[in-house]
């Protein structure tokens, strides 16, 4: 009998608190891709939005696709292709007054326009990213294999922001 130890994508990485932001890894819990066979199915989020689905969030992540974050699949399996994505993504949270300013260095989208309940599928540097607006900042989902690069890039721009603020 094998008992395998689980590790998060940024296992052991301490949060970074600097320049008016806090960067930390977040545990997203269960993440399931929901791709309805009929795109007009009720309850499916409009593009660029997040809808509550019980205790979970249903986050629009692309054409005909949403991620159910933090909850069980429930009835979706009957009307949609359902795929486990819990291990495919690294979750980062970037909170604080400087979050928009930090992301303006990496994300080519006007994130000032995102309110809680909004999301965007775009890029962070050269990496695909799902940006979810949350209270006080953003959650960022990047491919698990690129978690270190995402952290490095965010840490770099946070460092530069800190130096700017010190001027």
């Amino acid at each position: 009998m094998v008992n395998l130890i689980a590790k998060s994508p940024l296992w052991g990485q301490a949060p970074l608190v600097s320049a008016g932001v806090t960067l930390a890894e977040v545990d997203l819990g269960q993440v399931t891709s929901i791709a309805p066979f009929d795109m007009a199915v009720p309850g499916f989020p409009a593009p660029n939005t997040v809808v509550a689905d019980g205790a979970a969030r249903l986050v629009w992540t692309g054409r005909g696709q949403a991620f159910l974050i933090g909850g069980p699949v429930g009835d979706w399996a009957e009307v949609a292709a359902v795929t486990d994505q819990s291990d495919g993504w690294a979750g980062l949270s970037l909170l604080g007054a400087g979050a928009v300013d930090v992301l303006a260095r990496l994300v080519p989208v006007d994130l000032r326009r995102l309110a809680v309940g909004d999301c965007a599928r775009t890029q962070l540097g050269h990496m695909a990213v799902i940006v979810i607006a949350v209270a006080g900042g953003f959650e960022l989902l990047v491919f698990r294999s690129m978690a270190q690069t995402a952290w490095h890039e965010l840490a770099t721009v946070i460092k530069m922001r800190g130096a700017r603020l010190a001027c």
Binding site: P47, N48, G62, R63, P108, V109, A120, R121, T122, Q123
Partner: peptide, 11 residues
Amino acid sequence: PLCGPRDRREF
């Protein structure tokens, strides 16, 4: 049509 106006680099 889904995401709104975006920079060319995304395409």
